[in-house]
Amino acid sequence: MKRVGVFVCHCGSNIAGVVDVKKVAEAAKEFRDVVFATDYEYMCSDPGQELIRKAINEHQLNRVVVASCSPRLHEETFRRCCESAGLNPYLFEMANLREQVAWCHAKDKEAATAKAIELIRGAVAKVRRSAPLTPGVVPITKKALVIGGGIAGIQAALDIADAGYKVTLVEREPTIGGAMVKLDKTFPTLDCSA
């Protein structure tokens, strides 16, 4: 039995200023297997995540859709949130109502709201067919490669080496030093660059 929860985020006014989030949450309730849908100001905030966790427990949700920003920003946040409520983090799906709706259709609120509903409809259809996934485990070679022997590469290599790890510093020129070693005094303190 699939039990999907849909959580619509306002992102302050980023989404709610364009999309009718109440209407979207109401519409989501009608989708197949959706047993709970709501909206909140900042879904990524602590109270927002707590709201998701509570709903997972109260409504025995086994699939979650958060309709908010790009997964690039908060996919990990919400996966961890689901996991902390005992749900496999891969039974979670995101619908992007910010970059793909509010920000690019700011002038047409009605159409934006309609598109938001459709994106959630798609996400719900996808998450209904999700299977729990488990990460694999790989060993780590305790050695770093730094490409470039200018001030950035030297600083990074020294920090890693001082932490006790082996570092190979590769520089294509015959000497390390990069651009900085060509400089005289450096601003704003006018100390030397050697």
């Binding site: 790989v138 060993p139 780590i140 070679t141 490669l145 490409i147 022997g149 030297i154 290599a157 020294l158 890693i160 080496a161 001082d162 006790g164 790890y165 082996k166 570092v167 190979t168 510093l169 590769v170 520089e171 294509r172 020129e173 015959p174 000497t175 390390i176 030093g177 070693v181 050697a194």
Partner: peptide, 28 residues
């Protein structure tokens, strides 16, 4: 520069270029 060259944990490969990278995080 000298600190990097003398550090026991740093191997310096100057006049050298990376030609190929395969593998993945933790195991390049």
């Amino acid at each position: 520069m000298v600190a990097a060259a003398r550090h026991p944990n740093i191997e310096l490969l100057t006049y050298s270029e990376v030609e190929d990278v395969s593998g993945y995080v933790g195991n390049f």
